[in-house]
Nucleic acid binder design. Structure first.
Lengths: 254, 254
DNA sequence: CTAACATTGTGTATTCTTTACACAGAGTAA
DNA sequence: TTACTCTGTGTAAAGAATACACAATGTTAG
């Protein structure tokens, strides 16, 4: 078989999900050879209009016509999994310096109609404002996470898993800042947490909590264009965070 | 290529790590075809003699002669990832009803000398006493996690990742009981936590904590064969745990 | 059979963390 | 100038984590 096609180069084949002429051929070959394909799928979250959004395209697999699909691609033979995920991100969003983390492998037989494909799901967080969608093929755009119509393949399951992962992760690690501009108000930060965790938080306690962690730096600037008293703008201090000693090892509770 | 070999059946080929005559041929074929192989590797933990143990075999890949290796195998073409992991467990330990969870995919190029193989790591917890090692080939046996000599492939990295995962997971979910006999004393439970988390805990606070969770049932029995006052034996009540409502959604801290 | 030993079982005071809650200040818009 | 909206702040109460000591129970050695 033609390994040249399998180890697809750069933007040649679009995605295990998005599809383009070649991918189907590749998958057909995999299937007829009894080979398991490997892909990555990126769940790319953004935060806009006080809502958590996810970046999707229209699937062009016939079985999933008009269904939404995650961004993914087959893994190139000579690239690491992480690299493959970064490549997908780069190709789709034009962004390089992006938060990206592996979440889970999905490998049910029958999850892809064309062939056996195991996919490694990655979760990515990007700032919608800083970001320009490059390739707008397949109606690439942002969707509310909470009100999603049906999705292609098992992508709903993948998305749900990543969302749950995010809800947990954001409470233990400072990921959230990747979704915000570099300078943000505490209100924005709280909106972010409220949206992702789907909960209302007490404003004063929320502030107290973050200030006591001592990781926010006052930029000295204020919000502009708000129709009320402007709030202070802060920035997250990654260095301080790195240096901080992780204690709290012990918290048995279930 | 011969898909019959690739989709290895049952006990035919032993492992991406353990190897047996066929596996090397399969891998060679994968490599020459430019195909990425998929395996599962199980990090099987046990608890014995107040220490956390892991089940390993001797690698018989020449490059890793005399190095220890996790238990794994190529994923069969028609089985789910989880099934493949269960199969490995069953074949090696003879146990079916075992705690097993996917932890992470490892897919660095070059992680396997014979071919490109992406492996999905699973973590498993078993009670050493309840369990009989079935196939003792390749010097299958238990090793202390803390004092491990060099390992084959990137298996040390995989093991470390699973260990860290376990340390975290055991604090949030009642996994630990899988490592203990059905009936256990509080001292045994505490030893387990102390060993895994590598920390000393206050006995009275530990008890208070577990009793307040209200998930331990007094069996009415006592320890036997201890050279001192025997402690009560408890059992973990899974049903109560299932019914318990999960609250504590909110714990931002990093 | 008694004394020494080892480990179980228990409660309270202190500190830290989380929660609940209200009012003055700053800017905007009419 | 007033009404409006959101920012910024502190305290009291409840709950959780920690530190800590002594009597009870069984075993073992003399």
């Amino acid at each position: 078989m033609n390994t040249e096609i399998l180890s697809n180069k750069g933007t040649a084949s679009k995605d295990a999900a998005g599809g383009q002429k070649d991918i189907k051929t590749i998958l057909k070959e995999l299937e007829s050879e009894g080979i398991i394909g490997i892909s990555v799928d990126c769940v790319i979250f953004g935060f806009d209009d006080n809502e958590l959004k996810v970046l999707l395209i229209k699937s062009d697999f016939q079985q999933y016509e008009n269904k939404w699909s995650l961004l993914g691609d087959l893994v190139n033979n000579h690239e690491d999994l992480d690299e493959a995920a970064y490549r997908v991100l780069r190709e789709r969003t034009g962004m390089d310096d992006v938060y990206l983390e592996q979440v889970k492998a999905f490998g049910q037989t029958g999850r892809h109609p064309a062939a056996r494909v195991v996919t490694i799901a990655y979760c990515s967080l990007i700032n919608i404002e800083h970001h320009q969608l490059k390739i707008l093929a397949n109606e690439l755009h942002w969707h509310r996470v909470t009100t999603l119509s049906e999705m292609a393949f098992d992508h709903r399951k993948i998305l749900d898993a990543c969302y749950v992962w995010l809800q947990k992760r954001i409470q233990e690690h400072p990921l959230g800042f990747s979704l915000l501009p570099k300078k943000f108000s505490l209100r924005e930060l709280q909106n972010l947490y409220e949206a992702i965790l789907d909960v209302k938080l007490d404003r004063r306690n929320f502030r107290k909590k973050f200030f006591s962690m001592d990781l926010l730096e006052d930029t000295g600037e204020l919000e502009t264009d708000v129709p009320h008293r402007p709030g202070k703008l802060y920035r997250f201090n990654y260095e301080k965070y790195q240096k901080k000693e992780r204690k709290k090892w012990f918290g048995i509770d279930f």
